[in-house]
Every structure is written in C-alpha cells, then in structure tokens.
Design a protein around this nucleic acid. Structure first.
Length: 829
RNA sequence: GCCGGAGUGGCGUAACUGGUAGACGCAGCGGACUUAAAAUCCGCUGGGGCCUUAACUCCCCGUGCCGGUUCGACUCCGGCCUCCGGCACCA
C-alpha cells in the first residue's frame, strides 16, 4: 500500500507556520505565560539526530503548552563566539564570522525541516555587536561592583605552537595538537569573583525542587563549602607566621608536623640562603614537573622535603617540623596545613613515609587506636589535649576556636572548593574586554557610552607566539586615547570566555533589538524565571552555575527582581549508536536529512520521543524508526479508508447510552488516552508513554471501524470522529505536520495548534468493567469481570462464592479477606 | 575514595500512592493477500511442566544477588554485586 505523502505535507505546513508566525509570542499576555527555553547551540555546522533530541523535546513541549492555552515564549539563538570557529576558519582560510554565518544559516534550515519552530523575531546571536555590546556592559557592571579583577594566573603554554591552551586542549600534560609537553606561564588575567556568591549559590539550590537531583548534587559538590578555623603558627625563631586552615581545630594537639605547598610564599623565605637551598630548589622543580605531567592524584606518601625549620603550635606550644609537599595545594585554604596523621589519611600516609609521630587526640568508643580518617564524626572525645581533654569533638572545636580568636591567633572561616572564574582568553573570536591600560591612570574602564568595543574584522586571527591575543597585532584596535586623561593608552586585547556570553542570553530574548539597554526589567520580571529550561547534562556545572551567578549578581545590583533564572530544568540523555555517543569524530552519526527524505520529519520526531524516557541515554535503532513510520501510516490510512465517516459534522457530546458495548469501549479509551497523554507530558515529561497510549487508542479504533454496519449504534460515525479528533490533537505537538494535514482534511478550518487540548471526563476515564483478581493466600486463583466501583462487600461475596475459592478452602474458614477496590480480593487461610 | 543514577523477555522499554509483571514498539515465528516479492492485515511470542494423552480458561518459576517487613514487594527496609556519570590530594 502507498505511503502517506510526508514530503508534500511537511513542506506545506512548514511554509504555513513560517508565514503565520506560529510561535510568535505576545509578551503583553503574561497571565498564562510559559517561557520554554532550549539551550542555544554553538553553530558548529551540521546537526545530527543526537543534537536534535533537545530541540524536538522542546518544540513538542512548547506546542503542548500552546494547546494548553499558554502564551508560549520559545526563542532561539546562537552561542556564536568561540574557539571552534577560529580553528575551522584557520583550516579553511575563511573568516570566523563567515564560517559562523554559514553554519547558522544551515542550522536554521535544519530546524525548519524538522518542524521545530521558534519566534525568530527574537533571535539572538552572541557574536554580533548589538549583543556583545551588552556582554561588555555586564563586564563593566561587574568591574564597577568590584567583582571583576585582575590577577596573575598560571596558564597552559605550548612552547612549540607558542600559544595558550585551554585546559581541555591539554591531554596528559602534553599539547593536544603537537604532543609537546606544556609549560606553566604566569599572565595577568581577568577574573569574576563568583566566590562572593558561593554561599548564596549553594543555599539557593534548595529553592530549585524542579531541577534534576544529580545536577543539584553536582553543583553542590562543585561549590563544596567547608567551615573551619585559620590558625596562626609562628616560624620558630622568627616573627613570621604561617596560617593554616583546618576543619578540625579539635585535633590541634595531634598536629605533629606542618606541610606547605611548594608554591607557598614562606617556602621562598625559608629556603633562600639555607644550607640545602640547591636541594630544595631541585625538589620544587621536580614537583613542578610532576604537576604538569597532569597526573590526577599524587600519592601523599610519595614525595616531600623537610625544610630544616620548625613552627610553634599556638595551642600546645609544641615545636613541629615544617615540610613542603605537593599534596598540599596553594589554591585551597591558605596553602599550608597542620598535619594530623592520627585523624587524616593523607597526613597518615605522609607520616608513615617520613617516620613522623602519630598522636591520637580524639578517641571513639573508649578504645585507644589510630584512626586515620578525615571525617568529622562528631562523637569522639579528646585525649592527649591538655586542658581540652574529655571534651566532645564538637565542644572542643568551639572552645579552641573561641580561645584562639580571643588571643588573636585564629579566625573562624568558610572555605569553598569553587574558585573565581577566569574569563580572559588570548583569542580573537570573542567579545573584547572593555578595558583600557593607561600608563598614567592605570586600568580605566571604557565608558558605557563608547560601547561596543568593536571586534576588528581585518586582523590576523591566528594564535601568536607571545601569549597575547591576536588583537594586539592591530594597532588600529589597541591604540586608544585614555578616557580619563586623554593620553595615549592601549586597549585590553583579550576577549571574554564564551560562557560569559551565554550567562545572560535568556534575558535578551525579551528585547533582542533594544539598543538602549541589555534587557528590560519589567519584561524580565514578568517572564522570568524561565518556566522550563532544556539542555544537555554536560552543562550541569559550568554554564548553569555561571548563568545563576550572573542572575544573582544582576539581582544584587537591582537590575531584576529574581535571583534564580531557571525554575525548572530538564536534562535530556544522549543519543548513542553502536554503544557510543553519537558524534562526528566517532563516525557514527545519523544524518537527519536522510531520514526526513525517506520517512519524514514526523517519523524522526516520533522515534526520538518514543524510544525511551527522555532523561535517559538511548540507542539509535534504524528498525525501530520504521516502526514509528508504520504507526503514522496506519493513522493516515485510517483517515483515507474512513474519510466519509470522518467528514460527518460533529454535534457535540456523545450520549453513551446509545452506544454498543464495543463503542463504549472506544469512547472510554479516548477519554483515558486524553488523561494519560496530558498527565505523562505535563507532570512527568514522559513522551514515550504518552505515545504508547496513543498507539493503544489507534489500535482500538481500527477494528471498530471495520465492524459491519449492522452492529453499529446510531452515533457510530460521531464516535469515530471524536476518537480520531482526539488522536490527532494529542499527537499534534509531537508529529505536527501530519496532524495539521489530517486536521485540515477532516474539515477543520483553523490550525490544530489554535485548538485547546481535549478534556477528559473523569466519569469516562474509568472502564465499565474490570477484571477482579481473586487470590487465595496471595496466589491468583481466578478472575472475574465485574462492574467498576463494585462495593467491597460485593467483591468479597463474589470471591467467596467462586468455585475455585471454595475448592481451595476445602471447608476451612478464611482467616482474613483483603479487598482492594477496583482491583482484587485476597482470601487468606 | 566520595557523591549521584541505573540493573525487568532476544532488544528498546512499561507497571498509578505496596495490589493481575512484561503495556507499547522492534525483532522472530505462523497464516491471509500475491504468479512472486515488498507492503499490508490477522494470530503467536519470558522460562519450564509439555514435541512420551491433552492442556495456550491448569500448575510451578521469574524484575542483578542474599536476607527482612507484609495477606501481598519490580516498588519499602538492611547487606552486597555490576554498570554508567560527576568530583577527585579541598586540609
């Protein structure tokens, strides 16, 4: 039999949706607003079906919400700055701007052919001056608030390519491209002080119940707050102090040595002029080399050096040796630790290696014994701790902290694993940092009225040898008059990390063309937080944390009145083929165009939604795609075969009493399907089960329509029409083209998306009869069809008089009879 | 190591608040239609008792493993095993 003409149908409706502006949003209608946001893509070229999942889920949800009567805002844009454009451009010898533009055009075309529709009047492209001018504005805001600052930071440097590499480009300590071992270089870099918001960002995770648990957990671990005490130790025989951070001040009497990070400033002071200076410097070089080799974890017991110096413990008064070892990181805490080998595994390893004393100071359960654990168990009692002996761990923590604070030798502190956000990039294809370096005035921000700082087009954008941005080669760009003194000055030639671009784009969609402000407060307050954000779990930490940070910041500055940008988050699973994530580099991509040509975009959409729960990874199967195509063809054929019946005008409510038994079955099935589909999609995001419900409805319709006319009730045609309408409307958000066409062909004038979803009548969501399961001792012994809502007593009576039950009982009295309405009776003997 | 998530037929998966395990789909088998094939339609399809009378309206077993709670457990509790993901010297 012939297949339905999917190509013609899809072209027709894609054109019509574009012409009529199907997803055009009226921002004034805020009473039932629904902001449906999909993470905007990096325009990297061709999209494959793996990418498509995000947009297909989003488009279907947007259409469902539209049919639920919501005013849906579904915008799309392009995260268009970034390294791949630069690399591709270098390879192909075209300008990144051109490459990006071409890709955007191609990808837009793909969305169009998938029937994925957006309000394109709100399109946002982060590499356009009209957008990045406001990214620069954001930078100035942060600078003004003291949250953008400059500091020397180490960067990965490839001595052969003579360029700075991103962390992702360093694999096992060597340059990804040429295999040369990378070096560490110190450059002045711009940072955003995200740590200022660490507490807030952590705490507010509790206000996001509709985020996936795993994403919340990942962010929590990433920020990782710990409370403790900074304790000042004196370098013995000097007036210098070394401050250590500890979460376990209660173990201070167990500190039998101190360890400094090799980059701790005190190390330099201790070794300069020391007897073993050369040896110490050689060790530092060795640690450095190890670090750069990219090993994830250095065995704490592996390496360390005694610095021939001692520190005075301010609590016990004891003198302890000072070591330096690479297992202590400069980036966390103070870069120095008091080592308590009895209660910390790493310190224990180190002590074992260098034969340092291990002294138990917290005893659990009264039994003496070495307990190398870093956990703060909370139920131990102090021993070997002078005046603090006998105190519980928790009390000891507080008492020691109080005493040290009183003596000015300690401070309670909160530390985070989260670091400030390094946003400088020595790259061409990004938003220029709007700062000016003046020999007289120092660092001067570009006045807001001078924005945007335009990215010059005619620059040799290949990476340069000196660790500076390619923009530094352009004198026209970098030479500028100082805004403060008017003297000759130079622009900052670095560009911003692309995560800055994407940290605020969801605000811009509401006023994408506005040249007077980055966003409009009233519109943002009305439309945000985003009602549903959809994207890949790979953004669980960076993008989602940065976007939250920037939103918190804008709130703190009074620009908007909400702190959290995304009320609900959904992270869809990956699409795999042959067990691997679908990707160009693995050569296992399925091109959507081929499928669309042979079976249509609706088939592709249906398969993507049907093949499994959307949050889970799925394995692509060509065979299963055909199954979806078969289903759509069956729906189409139903229309073709019964077009005469379906042409019958629909006169409103169906009177169930005029229906035959099998007709009532279909009637109720239709109501049940409405209930299930809308519930599955709205409450659980479960398109897969929604589709199987629709398949069941279709399977029920088929046989009934085949029945000979003699058995049909007077409302047979209307019933079929009702069932078919229901099927088409519920299916429409997922397979929009075929449903629009069927809707039109069954004499409906307007688009199916101008309709509201049908409403299930609770009365008919129930079946007339149900299979009463009769159990004896919890084993099924019989079934009997009885009317729904039969009262428990009757159910019990039916069960007890059933021959099978009588046989099983063999004259015994039941000990207990359990009755569950509309389900089962269990006779226990 | 820590933190999350997941283990159900040949496969993708489903099962409401603890109540008929396997819906829906794929693959497979049998049949109808056809000169034939494809397509389509109909039926069967977890394992075993059971190709040594028959049994598809019978019985037993079965949701990673072991145990527990319960009239009843894929679902709850305790203890494991495996796989996937994130973080990984965080003091």
């Amino acid at each position: 039999m012939a297949k339905y003409p999917h190509t013609d149908i899809e072209h027709k409706w894609q054109e019509r949706w574009a012409r009529d502006g199907l997803m055009r949003c009226d921002l004034a209608r805020t009473d039932r607003k629904f902001y449906c946001l999909m993470m905007f893509p990096y325009p990297s070229g061709e999209l494959h079906v793996g990418h498509g999942r995000n947009y297909i889920i989003g488009d279907s949800l947007a259409r469902f919400k539209k049919m639920a009567g919501c005013e849906v805002l579904a915008p799309m844009g392009w995260d268009a700055f970034g390294l791949p454009a630069e690399n591709a451009a270098i390879q192909r010898d075209i300008h990144p701007a051109q490459w990006t533009r071409d890709n955007i055009a191609r990808m837009k075309q793909q969305f169009y052919h998938w029937g994925v529709v957006y309000d394109w009047e709100r399109e946002v492209t982060s590499c356009e001056p009209g957008y990045y001018r406001w990214t620069q504005w954001l930078f100035l805001q942060l600078y003004d608030a003291g949250l953008a600052y400059r500091k020397a930071a180490s960067v990965n440097w490839c001595p052969k390519d003579k360029t700075v590499l991103a962390n992702e480009q360093v694999v096992d300590g060597v340059c990804e491209r040429c295999g040369t071992p990378i070096e560490e270089r110190h450059l002045e870099q711009w940072f955003f002080r995200i740590t200022e918001f660490a507490d807030e960002l952590l705490g507010d995770l509790n206000t996001l119940p509709d985020w996936p648990e795993r994403v919340v957990t990942m962010q929590r671990n990433w920020i990782d707050r710990s409370t403790g005490l900074e304790i000042d130790f004196t370098v013995h025989g000097s007036d210098r102090t070394i401050t250590c951070f500890t979460t376990r001040p209660d173990t201070v009497f167990g500190a039998t040595f101190m360890v400094l990070s090799p980059s701790h400033p005190e190390v330099e002071r201790l070794i300069t002029g020391a007897r073993r200076e050369e040896e110490f410097r050689a060790a530092i070089a060795r640690f450095q080399a190890d670090k750069l080799s990219g090993r994830a974890r250095v065995d704490p017991g592996k390496d360390g050096v005694f610095l021939d110096a001692y520190a005075d413990n301010p609590v016990s008064g004891e003198q302890i040796p000072i070591y330096m070892a690479p297992y202590v990181l400069m980036e966390y805490g103070t870069g120095a630790i008091m080592a308590v080998p009895a209660h910390d595994e790493r310190d224990f390893e180190f002590a074992a290696r260098y034969e340092l004393p291990v002294r138990e100071v917290v005893r659990f359960g009264g039994e003496p014994g070495v307990l190398p654990t870093s956990s703060y168990a909370g139920d131990g009692v102090l021993v070997n701790s002078g005046a603090y002996d006998g105190l519980g761990q928790h009390d000891a923590f507080e008492k020691i902290a109080d005493d040290l604070e009183a003596r000015g030798l300690g401070r309670r502190r909160v530390n985070y694993r989260l670091r400030d956000w390094l946003i400088s990039r020595q790259r061409y294809w990004g938003a220029p940092i709007p700062m000016i370096h003046c020999p007289k005035c120092g660092i001067v921000p570009v006045p807001e009225s001078d924005l945007p700082v335009l990215l010059p087009h005619d620059v040799d954008f290949r990476p340069r040898g000196d660790g500076k941005s390619p923009l530094a080669t352009s004198d026209a760009f970098s030479n500028v008059a100082c805004p403060r003194c008017g003297g000759a000055a130079r622009r900052d030639t670095d560009t911003m990390d692309t995560f800055v671009d994407s940290s605020w784009y969801f605000l811009r969609y509401l006023s994408p063309q506005d040249s007077t402000a980055p966003f409009q407060r009233d519109l943002c307050d009305a439309w945000l937080p985003v009602d549903q954000y959809i994207g890949g779990v790979e953004h669980a930490i960076l993008h989602l944390l940065y976007a939250r940070f920037i939103t918190h910041f804008l709130h703190a500055r009074g620009h908007i009145s909400f702190r959290e940008p995304f009320a609900r988050l959904f992270t869809q699973g990956m699409v795999c083929k042959n067990g691997l994530k679908m990707s160009k580099s693995k050569g296992n991509v399925v091109a959507p165009d081929t499928i669309i040509e042979s079976m249509g975009a609706d088939t592709m959409r249906l398969y993507i939604l049907f093949c499994g729960p959307p949050e889970r990874d799925i394995e692509w199967s060509d065979d299963a795609v055909e199954g979806c195509y078969r289903f759509l063809n069956r729906v189409w054929r139903f229309y073709e075969v019964h077009s005469d019946l379906l042409a019958t005008p629909f006169h409103g409510p169906i009177d169930e009493t005029t229906l035959t038994a099998s007709e009532r079955g279909l009637f109720r099935k239709a109501h049940q399907t409405i209930d299930r589909v809308l519930g599955d999609v709205n409450d659980h995001f479960r398109f897969n089960t929604a589709i199987s419900a629709l398949m069941e409805l279709s399977n029920t319709m088929g046989p009934l329509a085949e029945d000979s006319a003699g058995e049909a009730g007077p409302q047979r045609a209307e019933l079929l029409r009702f069932a078919f309408d229901t099927l088409v409307r519920l299916l429409a958000p997922m397979t929009p083209h075929i449903c629009e066409e069927l809707w039109e062909r069954t004499s409906h004038a307007d688009s199916v998306f101008s309709m509201e979803m049908p409403v299930a009548d609770p009365e008919f969501v129930k079946n007339e009869q149900f299979d009463l399961v009769i159990q004896v001792n919890s084993k099924i012994r019989a079934r009997e069809s009885v009317p729904s809502d039969t009262d428990p007593d009757t159910m019990k009576a039916i069960a007890l008089r059933h021959p099978r039950v009588i046989e099983e009982l063999a004259g015994r009295e039941p000990r207990k009879v359990i009755v569950i309405q509309n389900r089962l009776v269990n006779v226990v003997v």
